[in-house]
Amino acid sequence: MVNIKSIWEAQKPTGDFIIKTRLENIAHLNCYACTNNITGQYLYIMSVAKNVVIPELKNYRFKGVEIFSFETDSSLELNIHLIDNELKDIFALFIQNIIEDITTTTSENEALTKTLNVIFKWKKLFDKISFSGMSLEYQKGLLGELIFINYLIDNNLPTDKILSAWTGPEQDDKDFRFGDIGVEIKLTSSKHPSLKITNEGQLDTQNVDKLYLILYLVENVKENGFSLNSLVFQISDKLHLDLDKLKFFNERLLLLGYLASDEQHYNTMYSIKQIYYYNINQDFPRIIKSQLPSGIYNTSYSIELSAVDEFKIEPHIITNSLN
């Protein structure tokens, strides 16, 4: 598979306003990695026949990216233009995703449809990126997921299995999917903790055979704790002997908005006070889609911990089911 970032980095000034390199690995399509010779900004261009219908995308923007169509004498061009150079790494992942999805297409129309699907998925991801770091809510969400990943690695679950199950960056309803087993992670530092459920899909078992929920109760400390940065370092260190897995892990962090330039925002230290493990079954108090009136969605709610004591399980039940 072509590495789009390496192509951009290898491009040299030619005297042209736009430096273009055709992506030869998808020979049935006219796709190009391009660089603006003046600004150094990356572009991706897909050229299609004039009879292919490109939806109205002129001046279509999301954070750091502009997308537009352009008509030449002989073709139509779909242009995806990076307008914020701080986002080069995540932009490269975005375009890489498009390339991987269109490689097996058989027509320009199919390739365009798949490209637009990727664009709309990634718009949601770009819109969550904060240039002053992730919000505290998102930090805690990622912190909980990394604690779980670290725990599974230490319990000798294969790292490729762990990383491929980590669906949080893909905006799945469940944070982890191990085949037909889902795991949802919660973390709170509240002095009056509860289970905060953000939508009706999180505890829905319709698409899984088993669903577990883990709640990490943490408190802020000044020393002898862990931070978001330290967990990233710990996991990276455990993956350092396998560069492919380390690259995959770093890409997932980017998808969640964890940027190296924002590391100074992620040094708050915590320690774990308590961990609760739950088995989610039909009797667990929850709101699911099938219970909601038509037209109501994205339902958030809180569950008192005292109401779910009977659903607690031992941690080995989860790890054993994942092996």
Rank of each mutant, 00 (worst) to 15 (best):
M1Y: 13
V2G: 04
V2T: 14
I4Q: 08
K5N: 11
K5S: 13
I7H: 09
K12S: 10
K20P: 00
E24F: 00
A27K: 14
H28T: 07
Y32F: 15
A33D: 11
T35R: 14
N36K: 11
Q41H: 13
Q41M: 09
V48Y: 13
P55I: 09
K58A: 06
S69A: 12
E77M: 09
H81N: 14
I83T: 15
N85C: 01
L87C: 04
L87R: 07
D89H: 07
F94M: 06
F94W: 07
I95P: 08
Q96H: 10
I99C: 01
T104F: 10
T105D: 13
S107M: 07
E108R: 05
N109H: 10
E110F: 00
A111G: 09
A111K: 01
L112T: 10
T113E: 15
T115P: 02
N117C: 07
K124E: 15
D127M: 01
S130D: 13
S132E: 14
M134P: 08
L136D: 10
E137K: 14
E137T: 14
E137N: 14
G141H: 08
G144C: 07
E145T: 06
F148C: 06
I149M: 11
N150R: 07
N150D: 15
L152V: 08
P169G: 09
D172W: 00
K174D: 03
F176L: 01
F176M: 02
R177D: 07
R177C: 09
F178K: 05
F178E: 03
V183G: 05
L187V: 15
S189E: 11
S189I: 03
S189H: 13
S190K: 10
K191I: 01
S194W: 00
S194T: 12
D204M: 04
L217Y: 01
L217Q: 14
E219D: 14
N220K: 14
V221Y: 09
V221L: 10
N224S: 12
G225E: 10
S227Q: 03
Q234I: 10
L241V: 01
L243D: 13
D244T: 12
K245W: 00
L246V: 08
L246K: 14
E251V: 01
R252T: 02
L253C: 08
L254P: 06
L255E: 06
G257A: 10
L259F: 15
E263D: 09
H265D: 05
M269I: 03
I280W: 01
N281S: 12
I287D: 02
S290T: 12
Y297I: 03
N298F: 06
N298H: 11
S300G: 12
Y301V: 07
A307S: 15
D309A: 04
E310H: 04
F311G: 02
K312T: 11
K312D: 04
H316V: 03
